[in-house]
Design a protein around this nucleic acid. Structure first.
Lengths: 132, 132
DNA sequence: CTGGCATTTCCATGTTTGTCGAAACGTCGA
DNA sequence: TCGACGTTTCGACAAACATGGAAATGCCAG
């Protein structure tokens, strides 16, 4: 995963409409959703949606396939995990002492959860986030 | 973690200079780095750096502390894991069948690694990415 | 081949963003 | 208190971006 790819992915997600689209597709899973269905679900004008879908596709975050007259879009999780990996690369300088790293790299177990419990159980499943 | 926070975090990271800063601070760990040290390491003009540091701070991705005349910045991993959690929220509609979800949610074990091995061992440590 | 539907491309607009020089601010050593 | 140093704020500019209406494109049923 190269820096420019990560940058493109983050830029694509850093926009409300596109973030909504992506999360809708994450929720839809491999099955995906047609452009029309997305437009209806999010109440976005066709031209605007097309612009954003193109953006997300070029960023590699979503994938397009045809099904009769409709174009179906679905999320590409591999790309997302790649981006996350890039962000935590060389975490804490790959220090050999997990102690110095723990406060940052593995705050999930209990500390970070005291703030906001809404959607724990997903990414915050207490697994080791970085290689520390 | 609210949507606007996630949006702010992604927008902050979706910029080359800021991405470089954040990754530098991720590598630096809890110890952090002074503004001057960052400016030197990345060859960024002081005013520009200050602008980006402020941006990252407001997004909650980095934290500031004073040490004599210098301001030390360090990454806040809790925020990052929160963002990742938000992105994979309701993954695959929380479907009860992991089979339909696996191709997207847990492609890491072997499939995704065949592409690019550079920084595996970090985020791509084969742990379950979403709650599927 | 033709009509119709789903989606995209084109275009113009207003808004946001990244950049840097100059000046101001706050903190520390003497 | 003073001078110096590290950092931030201000001001201005060019560039990139989001948006939606209208027209064009691609695909399918009959």
């Amino acid at each position: 995963m190269e820096k420019k790819d990560v940058l493109a992915g983050l830029a694509a997600l850093a926009q409300e409409t596109r973030l909504d689209i992506f999360r809708l597709l994450v929720e839809a899973g491999p099955e995906g959703r047609s452009a029309g269905a997305i437009a209806e679900a999010l109440a976005v004008a066709p031209a605007t949606l097309s612009f954003h879908l193109s953006n997300l596709t070029h960023a590699g975050l979503i994938v397009q396939r045809r099904e009769s007259r409709s174009l179906i879009y679905s999320a590409d999780f591999g790309r997302m995990t790649g981006i996350v990996g890039f962000l935590s690369e060389n975490c804490c300088g790959r220090s050999a002492n997990p102690a110095a790293c723990a406060p940052l790299c593995a705050p999930v177990p209990e500390a970070a959860n005291t703030e906001n419990q809404e959607e724990t159980g997903n990414g915050a499943s207490a697994g080791p986030r970085c290689g520390c």
